[in-house]
Nucleic acid binder design. Structure first.
Lengths: 156, 156
DNA sequence: GCGCAAATGCTACTATGTTGCAAAACCATC
DNA sequence: GATGGTTTTGCAACATAGTAGCATTTGCGC
């Protein structure tokens, strides 16, 4: 993986350009630098909220990047697998994706019930050292806050 | 709604039988007492975990109750609308339904990552009086704990 | 029982996600 | 730069979850 990184750096230097954050992230996971992966990661990194598969596809299309629906699904799954992105189920049946925070992705999400947006609240760690009934083994906790986001709340 | 309840009681007395909890619950919401609603509610009341649409359909079929897939969807939606049941999105794309706890349904769920079961943890209220960024209006909090349930955890 | 509104059942449709396989792209090596 | 093996992509077909419209049935107030 370090080797990959070095080789990427090498290749890029011969191209006379710097690796983008997205490219570095992908190389660090031992994955190949492909058009789709870089573009998807760029979109996710630029977004301040979780995006559905559909929204990402629209963003790619807007950039003129040709891609297949299936490829996007597989790219997103790969990003989740290697831990770069995280996947979460919303109230609608569409899954949403976002770049994972550093460390174990135990952070809270805020779901706006009016516009449907989902944003990550990084500095918000739920204190779940609660009284879990006997026998249950806790791996991780997921906290979803529902309400109105700033842009929706001000219109009320 | 009180009138509804009285009329139901009246009707049932003439039938020489008591209203079941499910029938009372439905009547209390001003809804008609139908085969499907009573059966669905019975299933939900008897279950100690959230059920998918599919599982409920199987339970109804096991009781020999004929029903349409669409009817079940609409029945479940109605139960959620009137506040008797609650709906939650799992990691798979299937929604799960359960009877709502008394009071505002602010209770935690436990999701077993091995068998996929979802159980309600009634006495578990997350302390979410946390530092929400400015502008956000909090309506309700949803806490989902992930890990292994007693029956899965003991096999490890 | 009678009539009306609510609920059901049917068909068809949309949206989301998956599988298998051949073609193309990536990149390590020469 | 060309080459070759492996990964990734694109395509087509399929699978699952949920929705819409409308005619028929059913609960229930009278």
């Amino acid at each position: 993986m370090l080797q990959n990184h070095l080789q990427l750096t090498c290749k890029l230097m011969s191209d006379h350009r710097q690796p983008t954050p997205a490219e570095s992230l992908i190389a660090a996971q031992g994955g190949r630098i492909t058009r789709t992966r870089v573009a998807v990661l760029d979109v996710l990194l630029a977004a301040d909220q979780s995006l559905t598969h559909d929204e990402i596809a629209a963003a790619l299309a807007a950039q003129g990047i040709k891609h297949d629906r299936v490829t996007l699904y597989r790219t997103l799954d790969w990003l989740v697998d290697v831990g770069v992105a995280h996947k979460m189920a919303g109230d609608d049946r569409a899954r949403r994706f976002g770049v994972a925070a550093s460390g174990p992705h135990e952070h809270a999400h805020f779901h706006c019930d009016r516009c449907g947006k989902v944003v990550c609240l990084e500095g918000l760690q739920p204190a779940v050292a609660v009284n879990l009934p006997g026998g249950y083994q806790l791996d991780r906790a997921e906290l979803v806050l529902h309400g109105a986001c700033p842009s929706c709340g001000k219109d009320v």
